[in-house]
């Protein structure tokens, strides 16, 4: 696990549901074919209403001109991030687009589990409502040792909540590696 995660912020509001993250009509592509799965990056966050896409101003597309990678790699969210469907295409599409971390006030349960167990990115929580503090495009750095987030654009540092009991799965990489490490399933 890297000690720091750096990237530009893409800011979203409360209750970002999985239909906004990846609309259902796109849930038809292969997730295992590297070339075809790029479609998920292309349509990541494409269901977010325009005025909510890239706060505070809105109207900022997450990916541009049919590209499957986004220049934003850290998502800032409000409460109940990832609510709705169990579709693992949601954290997967964000990872394919280049997301390395999400920092939200709280998560919907299945999305959080999928992010951790599938090892797509690290879902951090922060007690501060960052949605009103950070602007889309701000330059961020997450320090995993001190568990802090620094906004290098505004020069403000925020404390992140401890990753708690899931840290062992995150450190292992995903639920399979964790299960191998603990002897639950045989090592490959």
């Amino acid at each position: 696990m890297n000690k720091v995660i750096e990237g530009l912020a893409y800011v979203l509001g409360n209750d970002i549901d999985t239909d906004q993250i990846i609309p259902a009509e796109h849930l038809v592509y292969s997730l295992s074919d590297p070339e075809e799965s790029k479609n998920y990056g292309k349509f990541a966050l494409s269901g977010v209403p325009a005025d909510q896409a890239g706060l505070p101003d809105g109207g900022i597309s997450f990916t541009e001109n049919g590209q499957h990678e986004s220049k934003y790699s850290i998502i800032i969210g409000g409460r109940n991030f990832g609510c709705g469907s169990s579709r693992e295409h949601a954290p997967a599409c964000m990872e394919i687009a280049g997301v390395r971390a999400v920092i939200a006030e709280s998560y919907a349960r299945i999305f959080y589990r999928n992010s951790v167990d599938g090892g797509f990115f690290i879902p951090f929580e922060c007690a501060t409502s960052l949605v009103t503090e950070i602007k889309t495009g701000d330059d961020l750095i997450i320090d995993l040792e001190s568990n802090t987030l620094t906004n290098r654009s505004s020069k403000v540092t925020y404390e992140l909540k401890s990753l708690g009991e899931v840290i062992e799965i995150i450190e292992a990489g995903n639920i399979f590696e964790y299960a191998r490490k603990t002897g639950m399933i045989p090592s490959a």
Partner: peptide
Amino acid sequence: TGIGNTDAAFILGTGKLW
């Protein structure tokens, strides 16, 4: 309860889930 693909694949192989 609902789960994602990774958890479902884990169950397919082990019959268990945390």
